[in-house]
Design a protein around this nucleic acid. Structure first.
Lengths: 226, 226
DNA sequence: GGATGTGAAGTAGTTCACAGCC
DNA sequence: GGCTGTGAACTACTTCACATCC
């Protein structure tokens, strides 16, 4: 009667979107040389209540210590496991304009199990050049298998590019183009839209509301603390 | 007894995060020459149910027509008003590496009331150069007032940069650096973290769950339709 | 006929309050 | 004493079902 997988516990959507934030907080705590952190401090930085933090973390199993709080290092590790970081996966990047370059050159984009597999572009001046240690390939040529693909292409190109990637067997798309994609069942698309994020920020600024919002952290008025 | 402002209706957090998606869908419908769209089609593309779409849109006032659906043009306009696009606001960008350049050169980032006010960097080679029609200023110099600032700086620089911007009277921050910011009450911070978005995509891909997630649209298996 | 808009019901997520453990 | 973990209460969001209107 041993549970087959801890990860099989289904986490709620809001929890999933908060876990990476807690992880980041745990990491920054470690960098400052602090080893322990409690739920109220995490909540303060993440813009949620301490109870929410405890509920979220309890879903990963009992990893705190009563009276003392959580071990930042253990927290970092367990959240990583819950999000599937212990599995390796490959990432292809399509489109190496400023955004694509920013992503592949960032030391924080590909972390925890993510491995850059290939870069593609359609610009003859870019094809063949080396970026972040990878030679850029022609997107018109063969597409190598990868777990997910990141679309950093113009809006108009997004749909045809997505079609081609799905046809090549890539079923996870991270789309930075401001375009709604139509994909077959079984393919996951996650959108990141800069102008939408700006709009959400403006809404909160105008209405003075909401300690937490969006899929990514939105915190309003975290107190400075000690 | 006239209501002072339609916008005074408080919209729920999930609704706020979906409205920009509906707007984008309405816009892409207009571009295709279609003038009307119904809630089930919007829902299909956005990855939510038709009822949710109607509930969200009903919160903006009655703008659909029974039997026919919604007018894409009106929808686009009303969502814009609800999100505060009718007010102009200025945007400063700090850090003009690949990401900062990608943002200011993108035709989709600064839309609907957003006006680029100033660009800042600390690199002497970048200061003085012209990007997107603006001369890059020295961040060490005076900071001009702006409604919001976009941080495209390295993680380590994020907190000091934020402190400086807040001190200069800028109370809305869109932070692309993977760093939790501590800001005074009254300042809104919205975070966009690429690696977190990638993690959320991976979670859904591994677990095969969730039609909608995150603050930004996550759709799994939108059917192709006609 | 067809799609919106909305009370009512159902479900999910958050907060309260406190027992349990360090 | 302090902080976690969790049943219970509460709140918010979503879905159902249908009256309403074009």
């Amino acid at each position: 009667m041993v549970a087959p997988r801890l990860r099989s516990r289904r986490l709620s959507e809001p929890t999933i979107s908060r876990l990476p934030i807690y992880q980041r907080i745990a990491q920054s705590w470690l960098e400052r040389g602090e080893s322990r952190i409690d739920s109220s401090r995490i909540g303060e930085l993440a813009g949620v209540t301490a109870t929410t933090v405890r509920r979220d973390l309890a879903g990963l199993g009992a990893l705190g210590t009563r009276g003392t709080g959580y071990d930042a290092s253990l927290l970092n590790e367990r959240i990583g496991e819950a999000l599937g970081h212990d599995r390796r996966y490959s990432v292809a990047v399509v489109g190496l304009g400023n955004l694509g370059r920013a992503l592949v050159n960032s030391s924080h984009f590909l972390i925890r199990g993510a491995v850059l597999s290939a870069l593609y572009d359609t610009d003859p001046d870019v094809i063949g050049s080396t970026i972040a240690g990878h030679v850029v390939r022609d997107f018109a040529g063969p597409i190598e298998q990868a777990t997910v693909a990141v679309l950093c292409v113009p809006a108009r190109a997004a749909q045809p590019v997505a079609d081609r990637l799905v046809a090549a067997g890539i079923h996870g798309l991270l789309n930075f183009a401001p375009e709604v994609l139509v994909v077959p069942i079984g393919t996951a698309v996650h959108y990141v839209d800069f102008s939408i994020e700006l709009q959400i920020l403006m809404y909160h600024l105008n209405n003075g509301t909401g300690p937490l919002g969006g899929g990514v952290l939105h915190s309003l008025g975290v107190s400075a603390g000690s």
